[in-house]
C-alpha cells in the first residue's frame, strides 16, 4: 500500500468513523459540550471583523463545493461559456480571500488578546491551524491552478464520490500537484478533528429554521386589553 492509498484511500474512513462515532458519544454523554464556547463577551470588535467574513465566506464556499459534488454537470454546463466561468471563479476567489481575511483577524485576536488567550485551549490553536491551511490551500489552488470549478468535476468529484460509495479510488489524487493534495487531505483532517474540538458546533447549524412553520413575534398588541386601567390613553409603545 502506497502512502497515497493510505492518506487518500484509508484515512478518509478513519476520519469518517471518528466523526460519526465520537460525535454520537459526545452528543450522548456530554451534550452541553457541543458548542464553540463564544468569546464575544470578552472581545467583540475584532470578533466581528474576523468571525463574520470567516463564517460567511467559508460556508458559502462550502455550499459551492457540496453543490459541485451533487450536480457536477450543472457546473460543467455553467462553465461552458468562458464569461460565466470567470464570474464563478472570481466570486469564489473573493469569498475565499474574505474567509482568509477573517481567519487572519481571528488568529491575530486569539494570539494577541490576553482575555482570549486565557480561554484558549491547545485544540483551539490546532483547529485554527488546520482551517487556515484549508483556506490557504484553497486560495492557492484558485490562483495557481486556475479553474478548479471546471477540472474539479473530473478529478475531485469522482474521487469524493468513490469515497462516499465505499469504492475508494485514491489514484485520482495521486498525480495531482501538492496544493490539491494538501487541500484534500486537510479536509479529512478537518472531519477527524471535528468531534474532538470546537468544530463540533457545526452540527448545531439550525437548518430546522428553514422548514419550520413561521411565527410572528408580537411585542405590543394595540387592543383594549393592554390599556392601562387607570387612564383612558393607550400605553406608550416601548421597544
Amino acid at each position: 500500500m502506497s502512502t497515497n492509498d493510505l492518506l487518500f484511500g484509508v484515512f478518509p474512513y478513519v476520519a469518517g468513523a471518528l466523526l460519526v462515532v465520537v460525535t454520537v458519544i459526545r452528543w450522548r454523554f456530554r451534550p452541553f459540550s457541543i458548542s464553540s464556547l463564544s468569546s464575544q463577551l470578552l472581545e467583540s470588535r475584532r470578533l466581528y471583523w474576523g468571525s463574520v467574513p470567516f463564517h460567511w465566506g467559508l460556508s458559502t464556499i462550502l455550499v459551492g463545493h457540496f453543490v459541485a459534488l451533487i450536480i457536477p454537470r450543472g457546473f460543467e454546463i455553467w462553465n461552458g461559456a468562458p464569461l460565466r466561468l470567470y464570474l464563478l471563479e472570481a466570486t469564489g476567489l473573493a469569498l475565499g480571500l474574505w474567509a482568509a481575511f477573517g481567519i487572519g483577524v481571528l488568529a491575530y485576536r486569539r494570539f494577541t488578546n490576553a482575555r482570549i488567550r486565557a480561554v484558549s485551549s491547545t485544540m483551539d490553536f490546532v483547529v485554527l491551524g488546520v482551517v487556515a491551511l484549508q483556506i490557504f490551500s484553497g486560495v492557492w489552488i484558485a490562483v495557481g491552478y486556475r479553474w478548479g470549478s471546471f477540472w474539479g468535476t473530473s478529478v475531485f468529484v469522482p474521487y469524493v464520490r468513490s469515497i462516499l460509495t465505499f469504492d475508494p479510488k485514491p489514484e485520482y489524487v495521486d498525480p495531482l500537484p501538492f496544493a490539491l493534495q494538501l487541500h484534500a487531505f486537510t479536509f479529512w483532517v478537518f472531519l477527524a478533528l471535528m468531534p474532538f474540538t470546537r468544530l463540533v458546533h457545526i452540527i448545531t447549524l439550525p437548518l430546522g429554521y428553514l422548514t419550520r412553520p413561521w411565527q410572528r413575534v408580537v411585542r405590543m398588541r394595540e387592543s383594549p386589553a393592554v390599556y392601562h386601567p387607570a387612564s383612558e390613553k393607550p400605553l406608550e409603545r416601548q421597544h
Binding site: R45, Y48, P53, W98, A142, R146
Partner: peptide
C-alpha cells in the same frame, strides 16, 4: 485578471461589512 477580480470582490465584501451590521460590532 483573476487576482484583480478576486481582490476587487474582497474590497466590496469588506466595504459592505463596514456599512452593514453596524450594531453587530458594538460592545
Amino acid at each position: 485578471g483573476l487576482i484583480y477580480a478576486g481582490v476587487a470582490g474582497l474590497i466590496v465584501l469588506i466595504g459592505g461589512m463596514a456599512i452593514a451590521w453596524r450594531g453587530m460590532r458594538q460592545t
